[in-house]
Design a protein around this nucleic acid. Structure first.
Lengths: 121, 121
DNA sequence: AATACAGTTGAACAAGTAATCAACTGTTCA
DNA sequence: TGAACAGTTGATTACTTGTTCAACTGTATT
């Protein structure tokens, strides 16, 4: 049993199309990449964070501005910016009392554009 | 107050960059599209569903095959396929006792490719 | 030094969710 | 007709998560 073979113990059925399963398994992305991919989408799976990212597509913004834009508290925004930063999706810079956030990834725009193409059909 | 203006009541700060906030607000996508986009990403934000989608990139598969591939029960897979189907991401066809699932969206591949590009950096 | 304000943080609570289990449907085959 | 099996479904449970609240840090201003 190699690393590409998960625990089949829990599968409660006989394999009908053994050839297809073997073929698909061989070409599946690395388990680690799949978990990371799900985690990335999980970050985008919240409307507050989606709005923050869309806002940052246009301009870097401080926490107060985002809070005002979305009609939410600074605390709520700060918590979500922390999640986005931990995922390396945004970066920030300090200028006096003000902390400015901006996007830190070139793939995000493409992902969002494709997603918006799906939902606006 | 038009429909583009959310409740600022809950914002606990003065607006520092009023011009930027106004500009960004004007170009934000529709609220409804943003909520749908978050919901779409939420569907992808689970490793089981990510694996199912990646498997279906290669071939249509029945529930048993997917269960065997991922080492999970038919029930668990069926529940997740239901979520994917409700989001119009997969479709199915019945052939005797067997139900075959396949992808039902052309944007998904692009979204996943961009996502994988991000996580495998 | 003291005030003001942008921002962060941790605890707590409510809401949502994925896997499990048992019971069920629908189709095939003997 | 009845056994066998692919698949579905609803309830339950354990777990995750977003917002709130209060207390805190850091910087600028007077």
């Amino acid at each position: 049993m190699n690393s590409n073979t998960p625990d089949i113990d829990k599968c409660d059925c006989t394999i009908i199309h053994e050839d297809i399963v073997a073929e698909v398994r061989q070409h599946m992305p690395e388990e680690e990449n799949l978990l990371d991919l799900a985690d990335l989408f999980k970050v985008f799976g919240d409307s507050t964070r989606v709005k923050i990212v869309c806002a940052l597509f246009q301009s870097e913004m401080c926490v107060c501005d985002i809070a005002a834009l979305l009609g939410m508290t600074k605390s709520a925004i700060s918590h979500q910016l922390r999640v986005l930063k931990q995922s390396k999706l945004v970066k920030n810079r300090r200028d006096g009392k003000v902390v400015y956030y901006s996007l830190d990834d070139e793939h995000v725009k493409n992902i969002f554009d494709q997603g918006l193409a799906h939902v606006s059909e």
